[in-house]
Amino acid sequence: MPDMPAHPEQDGRLIDANLHLLDRAVLDRDGWPVLAVADVEIEVPEGGGRPVVASLLLGSGLATRFFGIHRPRRSRYGVAWSRVTRLGSGISLSASRDELGVLWFERWLRDRVVGRIPGGRHDPR
């Protein structure tokens, strides 16, 4: 068996990007869902060395898969790997979903539609 590289990241587990990262649910600091992992950005450090995961690209998978819309790379929601706090059944981030600034559609829907219908901004009774 070849020597496995050490895994210093997180809890020192061996992570399979396909199995443990891709399409996992992403959760913010408070446990709110923030899309899912659509892709993983891998960088090779300039001085050489092992490639590292630079960021996770998030997406709902609906626009791309359902309507065939291809987002330009720069407009995809990337989250730096340093913000990942835990890899479990979901991937937890250290940021809250509001500060991630993702989902203009959600903001628009909240401010222009849902928030304007009476009762939209109140807890259910």
Partner: peptide, 24 residues
């Protein structure tokens, strides 16, 4: 189903403005 697939906030316990796509 849709919100869980897409990773949008969902739920009946929170005010609708917190889960706008779900309510849509």
């Amino acid at each position: 189903s849709v919100a869980q697939f897409a990773g949008w906030p969902w739920g009946k316990r929170v005010r609708p403005a917190r889960a706008p796509q779900f309510h849509l």
